[in-house]
Design a binder for these strands. Structure first.
Lengths: 216, 216
DNA sequence: TAGATTGTTAATCGATTAACAATC
DNA sequence: TAGATTGTTAATCGATTAACAATC
């Protein structure tokens, strides 16, 4: 509970707004690839399954980006949202867990292009230590703390089983990590660390529920 | 847009409530493993980072599950939520994309225990066709349509690149799939298919934004 | 019984949508 | 100019929190 820091800007931006920005950003970049020059909030809304009003309202938190009567220049808007999100800021990350999921994350497309740099991988399986995944060497989990103490790491990625989570999270907390991107099937809520829980199996259960309801 | 079907029960349950149920469910099962017999909404709320009021409000959509002055029997509540979510219903799924992410999904722990059955894997890489992943054979993407037409499949899992998504989604739509669990970096919004978009890279960008804000 | 905690109603808060003047 | 579409304010809608009587 409790704010870590009061923002300087007038009002805090709702997290629901922030969560939509990357979605707008991705689609705008797709439009750039297709050489689309401009788009109205209405057209964008239809493509993304939101309302035009919501897009304009969301953007208004950050400034004015369009032209009345014309819409938005795709290039300009993509760039503006990219800047808001800080897509060009470099963030250093370490991955814990060199299993299937860890491999999938590290191989995720355009990851490094977006400024996300994985500098080391850690695993507790001696058979994996010393091997390379996507050009990055796997280190022993025993060296995680020392590594964090001697490198400036922003984000820890947890791709580990639920039962190992507590122990690993403790190390990250004690080393003052800024954020954790958590794929472990555990809901993390930490006092001093920003956490993004990727609730993979929860999302499947939500889908399953909706299918069940549809069938009556 | 538009509702597919009006629910028979008095009021539709908000999706925000449904999304929290699997989180409660998972933690209750953890408590069962630890032989915890009962828990109050207050205790549960503290552990999960929500309010006690919200937990009681959420549960009240489905009935009454606790005892005043005592709290909830962990076993009973876990079972009740499990039934609401339909965790014992079998759902048949096919996975499209036998890459790292596909492998991670199919190896996700307790997947099949929860009634989620992956019956086939499809890929467009001839080198992968015929191989086995987690005991399941990889078929050619060319046979997806025929497979869907001849088997009762509830959910399609998309673990494919963005550029292949449109083509594959079309097949699923035409074969009247009930739901799609989408890991491709595209926002899907379909008229007649329930979609759960797992916005992996969007969630990282959200975390990155928050870290940037924290640093001012 | 006295203390605790639910289930539920009411109050608050926040987010989405609608509407429209401004203006390109 | 006329038409289109923004940016923004106001209205609506929905979700969360607070409060408390019911009751174990």
């Amino acid at each position: 509970m409790g704010y870590k820091k009061i923002k300087k800007t007038e009002k805090a931006i709702p997290i629901s707004v922030i969560k939509r920005l990357p979605i707008y950003h991705r689609y705008l970049n797709k439009l750039i690839d297709r050489d689309v020059e401009h788009i109205s909030s209405k057209q964008l809304a239809e493509k993304l399954g939101v309302t035009a009003s919501q897009i304009r309202q969301d953007l208004s938190h950050f400034g004015t980006f369009g032209q009345r009567g014309y819409g938005y220049r795709v290039n300009d808007l993509a760039k503006a949202i990219g800047e808001i999100l800080g897509v060009n800021n470099k963030l250093h990350m370490v991955l814990v867990g060199a299993g299937n999921l860890g491999g999938a994350i590290i191989n995720y497309p355009n990851f490094s292009k977006r400024g996300f740099i994985i500098t080391a991988i850690f695993d507790n399986d001696p058979a994996k230590v010393g091997t390379k995944i996507a050009g990055c060497i796997v280190l022993s989990i025993d060296s995680l703390r020392e590594y964090l103490e001697s490198h400036a790491i922003d984000i820890g990625i947890l791709a580990i089983p639920a039962e190992d989570t507590y122990e690993i999270v403790k190390i990250f907390e004690e080393c003052n990590i800024k954020g954790l991107w958590n794929f472990a099937p555990v809901s993390l809520n930490l006092e001093n660390v920003l956490v993004e829980n990727v609730h993979i199996s929860e999302s499947l259960m939500t889908l399953a529920y909706q299918i069940k309801e549809m069938d009556e």
